[in-house]
Design a protein around this nucleic acid. Sequence first.
DNA 1: CACGCGCTTTGATCTGTGTCAAAGCCGTCG
DNA 2: CGACGGCTTTGACACAGATCAAAGCGCGTG
Lengths: 247, 247
Amino acid sequence: MPTSEGRRDQSGLKDQVAIPQACAACGVRSLTVCAPLDNEALAAVDAIASRHTYESGQNIFDEGEPSNHLFNVTQGTVKIYKLLADGRRQVTGFLFAGDFLGLASEAAYAYSAETITEAKVCRFRRGQLDELLQRFPQMERRLLVIAGHELAEAQEQMLLLGRKTAKERIASFLLLLSRRAKQAGRSEDPVHVPMSRTDIADYLGLTTETVSRTFTKLKTQGLIQLKAGNMVALSDREALAEIAETD
Amino acid sequence: MPTSEGRRDQSGLKDQVAIPQACAACGVRSLTVCAPLDNEALAAVDAIASRHTYESGQNIFDEGEPSNHLFNVTQGTVKIYKLLADGRRQVTGFLFAGDFLGLASEAAYAYSAETITEAKVCRFRRGQLDELLQRFPQMERRLLVIAGHELAEAQEQMLLLGRKTAKERIASFLLLLSRRAKQAGRSEDPVHVPMSRTDIADYLGLTTETVSRTFTKLKTQGLIQLKAGNMVALSDREALAEIAETD
DNA sequence: CACGCGCTTTGATCTGTGTCAAAGCCGTCG
DNA sequence: CGACGGCTTTGACACAGATCAAAGCGCGTG
């Protein structure tokens, strides 16, 4: 196992290319666009990636900016959102470690992105990434699969926003968070809910007051428990699932 | 110019492959996934495509079914929607000639699809299409671009569903229809609105009554005119655009 | 460890849109 | 060409969730 940095390994023997150190240390590779890459492709990705750390609450890019970079979140939580001229906000997604950021953009970003916790990303120049996609079709195929997932999720969210009641929205949201946490290898039952009531409201098409009241109601009914450190225990998952789908 | 069917042309000279007849007659090729294909690729696509015609109101597939086929709409209008157990419906999109159908699906369709008018599609077996995508990376790249468009549109729709008023939703909807019609080469000003009030309501997260009342209001204010044959004239596009973005 | 600030919760009231009901319209079919 | 059936419009009223307002609460800071 190589202990050198590996990133500049130019031995010329493709199948002996080492996993670049940064990627080797990447705990979420199996979840990302990098999952299907062999060592050679991984080295190429590594060569064009730059790593960045953001504090909580920092802006990554704004809607309308030229989308020169695409990102892969490797740590922390990020929200993406759109604004109306008068300030109404719609959070269109929360991104966690492993999520790809920037798929929906053409020349300009279609939404703004901001960190919710401290977060780390791998950043790619669009042109360089495009070249890589041409060289490594398995990467492009992977992106297409990811895009498909995101589309399916978007449809689910439209159903929520267009047709569900406040209670159904909150139940759906908690179950979604739990599912995502599990898939990223984090605790699925006491779920960590790192976002503010305002962010949740803007994601679910509600107000902070309604979000708060609904949490209280679910707590009173014994379906959830609010714990320290923004943890929420899903005491009655069955009932929550029931509510999320119908009611 | 070849008058023979062309589809089975096996001359062995790739650059002399003729455009298959069905594709040659396809009026919307430049809008579709087939846009970037050379004659050879087009012939391969043609070879695995089967054409189907549906009457108005026919089901194409249902949510949850194994997604064995993907489609390209070549004529007419199709709606896709999701249902809750109690029958509440969310229309997540309307598809027109040129639109690709099935991107958001994994093993199973993520939504149901039904025609709104008489419609024609090109149908592909998933496995065969996947093979083709491997052989012709420009096709895969094109699909990725299409998926990106759809994601951006989905975000826009989430903003509408989560944060816009009824009036803003209707104005946005009419402008969207007009834009899509223009891009497909159909009349953008008296816009054709082929879908029922119920379908519009289920797309915009409203009820038929509210949709109807809002149309009436816009008409009264002189912003639109309701004409025969489900045509709507956008008499004051400026004002509509103003309403759609802010109010 | 007390202070202050921002976030969250709770309360009182309001309103846009939903619900329920009925009448109008229009194309179709006998 | 007249009556039927489904869609659309209009009306009266109800309600889920928004708005406005004021306490709580927790957490970082000095």
